[in-house]
Amino acid sequence: RADKQHVLDMLFSAFEKHQYYNLKDLVDITKQPVVYLKEILKEIGVQNVKGIHKNTWELKPEYR
C-alpha cells in the first residue's frame, strides 16, 4: 500500500489523460487495494451512477 500522496499523484496524472475511469482501470494504474483506492477517490472524485458514464469515476470540479 503506497503513501497517500503518491497515490494522489498517480490519480491526478491519470485524470489528466482521461476524464472518466472505471475502478478496475484505476486499480491497474495505481496497483493499490480496492478499499484503500476508494477511500482516496471519495475525497477527490465522484462516482457516476447513471448515464453514459455509469460506474466510472471522475474528479470533482474543484480538482479538474
Rank of each mutant, 00 (worst) to 15 (best):
R1C: 09
D3V: 08
D3L: 12
D3F: 06
D3P: 06
D3R: 09
K4T: 06
K4S: 07
K4C: 06
H6R: 15
H6K: 15
V7I: 15
V7L: 12
L8R: 14
D9E: 12
D9V: 06
L11R: 00
F12R: 11
F12S: 08
F12Q: 09
F12H: 02
S13L: 15
A14Y: 05
A14C: 15
A14L: 13
A14N: 15
F15V: 01
F15E: 01
F15A: 01
E16Y: 05
K17L: 06
K17Q: 06
H18L: 05
Q19Y: 02
Q19V: 05
Q19C: 06
Y20P: 02
Y20L: 06
Y20E: 09
Y21P: 04
N22W: 07
N22T: 13
N22S: 15
L23C: 04
L23E: 15
K24S: 13
K24P: 10
D25I: 03
L26R: 00
L26V: 01
L26N: 01
V27P: 00
V27I: 14
D28Y: 08
I29A: 05
I29G: 02
T30V: 05
K31N: 15
Q32S: 07
Q32P: 00
Q32W: 04
Q32T: 08
P33Q: 04
V34W: 05
V35T: 14
V35D: 11
V35P: 13
K38L: 14
K38C: 10
E39H: 11
E39D: 08
I40Q: 03
I40T: 05
E43G: 05
E43C: 06
E43I: 03
I44W: 01
G45Y: 01
G45K: 03
V46K: 14
V46F: 12
N48M: 07
N48I: 10
V49H: 07
V49R: 13
K50V: 13
K50Q: 14
G51N: 07
I52T: 08
H53G: 11
K54S: 09
N55P: 06
N55S: 10
T56C: 14
T56Q: 14
T56M: 14
W57V: 06
E58C: 14
E58H: 08
L59F: 02
L59P: 01
K60E: 02
P61N: 11
E62K: 12
Y63T: 06
Y63C: 09
